[in-house]
C-alpha cells in the first residue's frame, strides 16, 4: 500500500512539473515593450508636441470666450470667428507666399511601358503628408483646394481629388507657407522626389512671393456634427 502511494507520488510529481512548465510556456507575455530609448524619447517628444498644440488651441478658445464675455456686440466677434474658421476650413480664397510644385512626366532614354495618365494617388498622399510636415498652411492640387475631408482616390486608372480627375500634365500643386524658401529646399531634397522619379515623374518646386489658392467649391459633407440649438 505504501509502495503504491510512493508510485502515485512519483507520477504526480512528474505531472505537476509538466503542468507547471506547460503553464509557463503558455502564459508567456506576448507583447513586451520593444521600443528602445531613442524610440521612447521620440514618442515622448511627439506626445509633448501634441500637448502643446492642444494647449495652444485651448488658449485660443479661451481668448475667444473672453472676448465674447467682454464685448457687448457679440455678433462682431462671432463674425470674426466664423471668417477665421472658414479660412481654416478652406472655404475662402487665400493668397500669400508659398511654393508651386510642378509634376511632369520624365521619360529616360530607354523607357519601356505604357503611357502615364496621372499621378498615382499614393504619391499625392505622400506629397501632401510631406508638405504638411514641412508646415504647409494651405494646399491646392490642380485648382482643387485640399481640405480636411478631401479624398484622393483612384478610379479607372486615373486619380481623383475632391471627385475630379487629375488628367493633365504638368500637374500644379500650390502651397502657402510661412517660409517658402526652406520648404522649397526641403521638397527638392525630399524622399518623395525620389519616389516620383521611380514612377517616371519629375517634381520641380519654385518658391514664389504670391500664390493664389482657390476656395473649396463643393459642399462640405458633415456627418457627425449637428448645430446646437440654444436652450435645447
Amino acid at each position: 500500500m505504501n509502495n503504491r502511494m510512493t508510485i502515485f507520488a512519483c507520477v504526480t510529481i512528474i505531472i505537476g512539473f509538466m503542468v507547471a512548465v506547460q503553464f509557463q510556456a503558455v502564459s508567456e507575455p506576448e507583447n513586451r515593450e520593444g521600443r528602445n530609448m531613442a524610440e521612447l524619447r521620440q514618442d515622448l517628444v511627439a506626445e509633448k508636441e501634441k500637448q502643446q498644440r492642444l494647449n495652444e488651441e485651448l488658449e485660443r478658445q479661451r481668448e475667444i470666450l473672453y472676448q465674447l464675455e467682454q464685448t457687448e456686440d457679440v455678433e462682431e466677434v462671432m463674425g470674426d470667428v466664423i471668417t477665421e474658421l472658414q479660412e481654416q476650413a478652406g472655404l475662402t480664397e487665400v493668397s500669400g507666399p508659398g511654393i508651386i510644385l510642378k509634376i511632369d512626366v520624365a521619360f529616360d532614354v530607354d523607357y519601356e511601358g505604357g503611357a502615364i495618365r496621372s499621378v498615382p494617388p499614393y504619391l499625392v498622399r505622400l506629397l501632401i503628408n510631406e508638405l504638411n510636415i514641412q508646415g504647409a498652411t494651405h494646399i491646392a492640387i490642380d485648382m482643387q483646394r485640399y481640405v480636411a475631408t478631401t479624398a484622393i482616390r483612384e478610379a479607372n486608372g486615373r486619380t481623383l481629388v475632391n471627385g475630379s480627375w487629375l488628367s493633365h500634365f504638368p500637374l500644379e500643386i500650390k502651397v502657402i507657407t510661412d517660409d517658402p524658401e526652406s520648404m522649397h529646399h526641403a521638397m527638392m531634397s525630399s524622399q518623395s522626389r525620389e519616389l516620383f522619379s521611380y514612377e517616371n515623374l519629375s517634381l520641380v518646386s519654385t518658391p514664389v512671393n504670391q500664390v493664389e489658392l482657390p476656395a473649396y467649391e463643393k459642399d462640405y459633407r458633415v456627418r457627425f456634427m449637428e448645430p446646437v440649438q440654444e436652450g435645447s
Binding site: 510512493t6 507520488a9 504526480t12 510529481i13 505537476g16 512539473f17 509538466m18 506547460q22 503553464f23 509557463q24
Partner: peptide
Amino acid sequence: MWLPLLALIIGILFGFLTDFQISDEYS
C-alpha cells in the same frame, strides 16, 4: 492519500521555481 497531492504541489512548485523554458513548437 496525502502523499500524491503533496507530491503534485511539490512538482508544480519545482516546475515554477526552476524556470524551465521550452520553446513554442514543443509546447
